[in-house]
Design a protein around this nucleic acid. Structure first.
Lengths: 212, 212
DNA sequence: CAGTATGGATAGTGGTGCTCTCCACTATTG
DNA sequence: CAATAGTGGAGAGCACCACTATCCATACTG
């Protein structure tokens, strides 16, 4: 398969594919001569994955490159990917109030301790969670109740996520499933949550099912 | 309070505040003379909210403006906000394969029907959910099981979300809580989910709690 | 053998979220 | 009562990011 066919199959313009090749999001095709290369199904798959991580996951190119590099490691391990690469896909920000952030960190540490979660201490996810907790405080919202209930529910979500990962055949498939499930799962959960919120709100504040 | 104090209190640079004023993210201060204005606590609150929606929620300026405009409507109604304004905060994309997208839409319609969710038919959240379902299909992942379990769990999440909204004192507070809870809630859930995934993975694939 | 496609490289583009500069004017300080 | 600093407002400029366009020597295609 040459680049034009790869482009047609995936719907990604040829210049964009070239750009991804330059950026290391896509491995180079097998060179048959100095300026001819062949691409195969793996390139199609990878390209689709990149597009989905970009469009749905809204991950920056650099993050996607790191994630794919992790997937392509010689000794790929699902737990490693879940523990090291995927945490980089949650955003961080520089919070204004250091004291508030430290309090939020302490709150997250407490949560992790009480739940007995086996989460590495330097985990970026802790940082991210603390930042969100601090953000709630900064806009004057009390996140306390939400935090406990959310923790309950994400535990169950994670069980299904890991089941989703485990069901994939080989190790490579599991890595793929871990990435896809985590990134797309966020978006799926967000969309479903909005619908469930609308439904719950309809039940709560007078039902207007005129267009449902 | 003048602009310098507003800037110091919130940590937002003065030129950025001026930019937000131009963009309509922040209402103008009360003019005391042609080139002097006074700002108050409401500006501080609003500015913090804007920063949090930008930094944590990663919403575009235009979306934030629309959201805040909705909050400032004369007859603010929580269900309206949850049903109209907040759905705009989930992304959309132009999918390559129309047939796949239509199948995904049908799947989402079925889900909504089976759950009896009262969700408006044209809802943007449906579009978004369908896009994610199509994305799963596009990368060759079977979302079927995940979908049912996620639907179960977001129903419970939404119950807590609405409780979070209801607990806020007045109507204005509830609108604020709905926005904050929805947007920041997404990020909080994502961060907690990553931690729960790491924990679940640690339990599943050999426990290495050396640094937990 | 004419015309199109290719890999590779470099430069340019459009959108976004600021940031800088300027201006006439106002407030504050010594 | 200066001198200095700060202000609202408006326009231009900037940095980053994800592309997109152009060019070239070479290779495939009809």
């Amino acid at each position: 398969m040459r680049i034009a066919e790869l482009s047609q199959t995936t719907g990604v313009p040829v210049p964009t594919i070239k750009y991804y090749l330059r950026e290391g999001l896509l491995p180079a095709g097998e060179l048959t001569s100095p300026n001819q290369a062949r691409y195969d199904d793996r390139h199609v798959q990878r390209l689709r994955l990149v597009r989905v991580l970009l469009d749905i996951g809204r991950l920056p190119i650099a993050t996607i490159r790191d994630l794919l590099t992790e997937l392509d490691r010689p000794d790929p391990d699902v737990h490693e990917v879940l523990g090291r690469a995927l945490p980089a896909t949650v955003g961080t920000r520089e919070t204004s109030d250091p004291a508030m952030l430290e309090a939020a960190h302490e709150r997250v540490r407490l949560l992790v301790r009480q739940r007995g979660w086996l989460v590495s201490d330097n985990a970026r996810t802790r940082q991210s969670a603390a930042e969100v907790v601090a953000a709630f405080a900064q806009v004057g919202a009390d996140v306390e109740h939400l935090l406990e209930h959310y923790a309950d529910l994400v535990e169950r979500i994670a069980v299904h996520d890991l089941r989703f990962v485990a069901q994939a055949g080989d190790n490579e498939g599991r890595l793929h499933a871990a990435v896809v499930g985590s990134i797309l799962g966020d978006s799926l959960l967000a969309a479903l949550r909005r619908m469930a919120q609308e439904h719950e709100s309809a039940k709560m504040f007078g039902i207007r099912d005129d267009n449902c």
